[in-house]
Amino acid sequence: MTITRPFTLGAVAYDPKVVTIWEGFKDWFATRDFAFDYVLYSSYEAQAEAHLAGDVDVTWDSPLAWVRTRRLAAAAGREARAVAMRDTDQNLTSVVLVRSASDIIDVAQLAGRAVATGAIDSPQATLLPLAHLADRGLDPGTSFTVRRFDVMVTKHGDHVGGERDAVRALMDGEVDAACVIDGNQLLFAKEGTIAPDAVRVLSRTGVYDHCTMTVLDDAPRFIVERFIELLLSMSFDDPEVRPLLELEGLRAWRPGRTSGYELLEQAVDRLGFYGADGTILVEGYPR
């Protein structure tokens, strides 16, 4: 790069509030004399490819986008780094819910039944729970029927709609089980989508991490350091910053880590979503 551009972040526009969030961050970074801008993509796949092409310096990645970026980078002899994440991105689980009155008390009983999931590319509501069931001897689509609720495909399940539809199908008796992220079970209970005591957790996945700020090895190191330093300094106690953090759903930024992506890496392989080089293998995925 000859002319320095502002440190540029790629993010996926899964909701209009994404503009509010990054405009707010941009303003806030400006008050810290940090030149920052952002580019919005309509899909994580396009964002990952743009990142590899050098169009942006950092990407705000879904866990699945991290997996693909890491694989694309590795295939090109490069390295991706997970540099920051939200406190709320760490140690998540997904749950397989059944109706409380259901006769299903053991995962094995899902054989021959219908299981609702989120979008085809949702790590939390499709890939991780399906791999979790596969690990327990239930092959998705063979041992049981998968009813997918494809809301905003290519946005990696960021939109809550697919999970909500899955749970509605469960409540309506259209399916025997539904897969959602743990936090959404509580959300759906609070908003009334799930009636009190209407569901129980049949099974829970292992612990995993969610979104991450990803950089590649050619990112300007000092600027990346400053970017991380500024993120970590954002305080929920600060009334100026708090609305931004609330919109983005965190209380504090944490240093990045990759230990929480192991389960998803395995799920991606097991379900054949991406190849080892980051190629998209899954059928019927719009590009």
Binding site: D87, T88, Q90, N91, L92, T93, V95, D182, G183, Q185, L186, V201, R204, F236, R251, A252
Partner: peptide
Amino acid sequence: GHVATWCRQQG
């Protein structure tokens, strides 16, 4: 499970 999720969300 519930309480772990809730604590993460609430900090």
